[in-house]
Design a binder for these strands. Structure first.
Length: 589
DNA sequence: GCCGTTTTCGGCCCGACTGTTTTCAGTCG
């Protein structure tokens, strides 16, 4: 029986890497630890089995030394090498890494020369002038550290994609409108559609770099200028997020766009492919590698990102997939999925009205859905136990069913409302209405809204019991997380995916920008098991139907195609999909 | 610490910006 999980091992290796940085160890030794973390993160098989069969060393990036350390740690729960390393440094020293501009060398100097171990002590030392007089530091450095400390207090440094998208797109459009701007994009994790971003990376192709940079740093959305150079400028926007501008020539743009979109791991993999062909790839060009010891292949002309991938004998890889999670191998084998697009969606199922805690009426929601071009909308107000959200007692629920039937007679064949409910999964896994009530609905979304703190085994059993009910069409916001504010509850997600596959239950991709749950990292596993997805806005207002756009980005990150997502089905076919589980278990038509 | 189609030693992705220097170290992405 293992004492430690894969996640524990990853945390251990990350801690060791940081400690080695502080120690001033060989950077490549440090990189070996972070590479091993990467390998483990992307490994989706049985970690316990891997250890038992002593096959850890077969994975790329894990050699005999790391295999020994991981095996010892997992088996005994403790690694003396790590404990000794940790004892060399005060624990609070790690907080200093969160400050912009401080790395291992400076932190080490602050600790050894001034005995600074906390952010508070550092702030005091900066103000008293001790930091400025340190060798290698100066007045400017001390001032910058104080600025970083302020920024850390004010902004946690993380932003939900949905919270920054509007400002980001406005700024991008203005930059695109400047004379002399030939191409412009927001690269980085924003382009990869990560659920949380730390900065915005604007990239511009132009022959007039000075004017573009000047426009950028003096924009009215800018709070402070952090850097202003010939090709790179950095600002903090008034919303708190840092925005970087890189200016390149049109010739450099494809390589730069690719480079700054990342992810870093994806880039390293591409660079290796270039090196293997006798080329070097950087943010400016694909060029000959001066140090190569092989005969370089001729270098094709690069006009677009797609050209770049083609040169490396890869199919074009969509930005959302560039996370080094198998996309390179799939592109080499021509096996990348045709990712779902917003236009593929025909309807959505998790939506609230003023009957429970929504702010738009049933009629308003129906009208908004039609204006968006959707063919159907599912209404799923809260169930009776969600008292705080005015959950519907059976009588009010059945009144809504009747009203929806009435509206459907008015709509004609082009549009339809479906009657559903967001049914609370109670503490013991039972549902909030008896089966004979659920049977009168077109579909049921089952979700957890209370008792979040159950132990993992209990919570997992609770959810599996709920989705085993034949009337439960889909599982809503599986983990209950709220990005940047509430952690997911303890849950064995692979077990849930397995149970959803067995019972024929859909899993929701909740597209509310605060949720984006189930997380994109799990969708490839769900897809492999044959679980289908429903992308739902969890709308509480007509404007929230726009959240579907967020959901599409996450679905694409999860490698999902239109066929994997049930609400791409048109009217006439979606009805059968909603009823499939009941037909399987209840023998009803 | 990892890795190997000239290697079991000697590489490991690499360029920009800042600040402190007077030619470069540290940090960042």
């Amino acid at each position: 029986m293992l004492q430690k999980s894969k996640e524990d091992v990853i945390e251990l290796l990350e801690s060791i890497a940081r400690l080695l940085e502080l120690k001033g160890e060989n950077v490549f030794k440090i990189r070996a630890y972070t590479n091993a973390v990467r390998t483990l993160e992307t490994f989706s098989g049985d970690f316990n089995l891997l250890l038992e069969e002593k096959r850890l060393g077969e994975m790329g990036g894990i050699g005999s030394a790391l295999e020994d350390k991981i095996t010892e740690f997992a088996a005994t729960g403790v690694l003396p090498y790590f404990e000794n390393l940790k004892a060399e440094f005060p624990a609070t020293l790690f907080d200093l890494f969160e400050l912009q501009g401080l790395g291992p060398k400076k932190i080490k100097a602050l600790w050894e020369e001034l005995n600074i171990t906390t952010v508070e002590a550092l702030e005091a030392a900066c103000k008293e002038g001790q930091v400025a007089s340190l060798k290698g530091f100066g007045a400017k450095t001390a001032a910058n550290i104080l600025t970083s400390i302020e920024a850390r207090k004010q902004y946690a440094g993380s932003f939900r994609f949905g919270d920054v998208a509007a400002v980001a797109e406005v700024l991008l459009e203005e930059i695109k409108g400047l004379s002399g701007v030939l191409q412009a994009s927001i690269a980085g994790s924003y382009r990869r559609r990560k659920e949380v971003v730390h900065d915005l990376d604007f990239l511009v192709a132009t022959r007039e770099p000075v004017a573009v940079a000047e426009f950028f740093v003096t924009h009215s959305l800018v709070e402070t200028i952090l850097a202003h150079g010939a090709t790179k400028s950095s600002v903090r926007l008034k919303t708190g997020i840092q925005a970087d501008l890189r200016v390149v020539t049109p010739e450099q743009y494809p390589s730069a766009l690719n480079y700054f979109t990342g992810s870093k791991e994806h880039n390293i993999a591409l660079r290796s492919r270039a090196l293997a062909r006798g080329w070097t790839l950087n943010e400016y060009r694909l060029g000959p590698d001066e140090k190569t010891r092989i005969t370089p292949e001729p270098i094709p002309a690069i006009h677009t990102e797609a050209d770049l991938y083609r040169a490396l004998e890869l199919d074009y890889i969509e930005p959302e997939l560039r996370e080094d999670r198998g996309e390179i191998a799939a592109a080499a084998a021509h096996q990348l999925p045709q990712l779902i697009q917003l236009e593929n969606l025909r309807g959505a199922f998790h939506n609230h009205t003023t009957s429970s805690d929504g702010r738009s009426t049933l009629e308003e929601m129906a009208q908004a859905a039609q204006e968006l071009g959707l063919q159907y909308l599912g209404i799923s107000d809260h169930s009776v136990s969600s008292f705080q959200a005015h959950g519907l007692e059976t009588s009010r629920l059945l009144e809504q069913v009747a009203r929806i039937a009435e509206l459907n007679r008015e709509f004609g064949p082009e549009f339809r409302l479906f009657s559903g409910v967001e049914c609370d999964i109670l503490k013991d896994g039972s549902l909030d209405y008896p089966d004979e009530v659920l049977a009168q609905l077109d579909y049921v979304v089952a979700s957890v809204h209370a008792s979040f703190s159950q132990p993992q085994a209990e919570m997992t059993a609770r959810l599996i019991k709920a989705i085993s009910n034949p009337h439960v069409t889909m599982l809503g916001h599986m983990t209950g997380r709220l990005l940047l504010s509430r952690d997911a509850y303890a849950l064995d997600i692979p077990a849930l995916i397995e149970a959803a596959a067995e019972t024929g239950t859909l899993i929701e991709l909740n597209a509310n920008p605060r949720r984006l749950d189930m997380d994109w990292r799990w969708w490839p596993m769900a897809k492999e098991k044959g679980v289908r997805c429903s992308i739902n806005p969890d709308a509480h207002h007509i404007s929230h139907l726009q959240f579907l756009w967020n959901g599409i980005g996450i679905a694409r990150k999860g490698w999902l195609t239109a066929a994997d997502v049930v609400n791409t089905l048109p009217l006439g076919k979606i009805e059968a999909a909603l009823g499939a589980k009941r037909r399987k278990y209840l023998n009803v038509s």
